[in-house]
């Protein structure tokens, strides 16, 4: 049928087998759409993109939290070793049926040179988290100090609406805890004990995951995001979740 032509011509229903050039261009557009969010401390021409990531009216120097934890994923550096996954599992006792972070793999056979790309994903610690809005009993909440989306496991009723609400598939039901589990930037297991970095970043041999404080101009995360030379993007910006996980190349 006519309406499904695009599905068949672009082989969208069998993506894993063959990624078309159109798909690749579509994917690249994700990055181009929000390229150059910041320049030297002021919001650039793509002001709407910045507005989508941070609450309206905020300026670059004024992030909602202190520290405002965020992560930059230098996606082209990822070699797919999945040490980050192992580090996360070890640090946070993640059961074998769940994950808090995952490295996704994309093959582009038509590409010149490198034909495979790895894309780490995790909870985006959104500034406008759909999971927090939908939880009926505030079992999941945005911490007022550091902005991490937390779980109060004793309150969780296990309705699983947060799992459906999350645009990033970042939540799962942990049987042992009897509650939903998710990435908390290792707050419980590392940051609260004086560590400065999260497990997935520590375990990464390729310096893919840069964790830090977006409200601190001296922080590496701040510097990586507040530059114009390289595109910075977020996943699923159209959901208006305003994530704190940024992606870039280089």
């Amino acid at each position: 049928m006519m309406i499904f032509k695009t599905l068949h011509t672009e082989n969208m229903l069998g993506k894993s087998e063959k990624i078309s050039e159109i798909d690749r261009r579509e994917f690249l557009k994700i990055g181009l759409a929000i390229t150059g969010v910041f320049a030297g401390g002021s919001i650039l021409s793509v002001a709407s993109a910045a507005e989508k990531v941070f609450p309206r009216g905020s300026i670059v120097q004024k992030y909602p939290y202190r520290p405002h934890y965020a992560m930059v994923i230098r996606v082209d550096q990822c070699i797919g070793c999945r040490q980050c996954e192992k580090g996360c599992i070890a640090a946070n006792a993640v059961p074998d049926y769940g994950w808090r972070t995952k490295v996704l793999e994309k093959e582009v056979p038509e590409a010149i040179g490198q034909k495979r790309e790895f894309i780490p994903v995790l909870c985006n610690q959104c500034n406008n988290p759909p999971c927090v809005r939908s939880c009926p009993v505030t079992a999941t909440y945005k911490d007022k100090n550091h902005g991490i989306v937390m779980m109060d496991i004793k309150k969780c009723i296990g309705c699983k609406i947060c799992m459906v609400a999350c645009p990033y598939n970042a939540r799962y039901f942990n049987e042992e805890k009897g509650a939903i589990d998710k990435c908390d930037f290792c707050l419980g297991t590392r940051l609260s004990r004086g560590e400065k970095n999260v497990a997935c970043s520590v375990y990464c041999p390729a310096d893919v995951r840069v964790f830090g404080d977006l409200s601190n101009p001296q922080d590496r995360v701040y510097k990586l995001i507040h530059q114009l030379q390289k595109p910075v993007w977020v996943l699923k910006k159209e959901t208006d979740a305003r994530p704190n996980i940024f992606y870039m190349k280089g």
Partner: peptide
């Protein structure tokens, strides 16, 4: 739902008014 008894308690003591549920 996984914890129906918690629901009976926290629906009243820890309400989230922005939640449709």
């Amino acid at each position: 739902i996984e914890n129906p008894f918690r629901m009976m308690l926290y629906l009243f003591t820890s309400a989230n008014l922005s939640s449709n549920i």
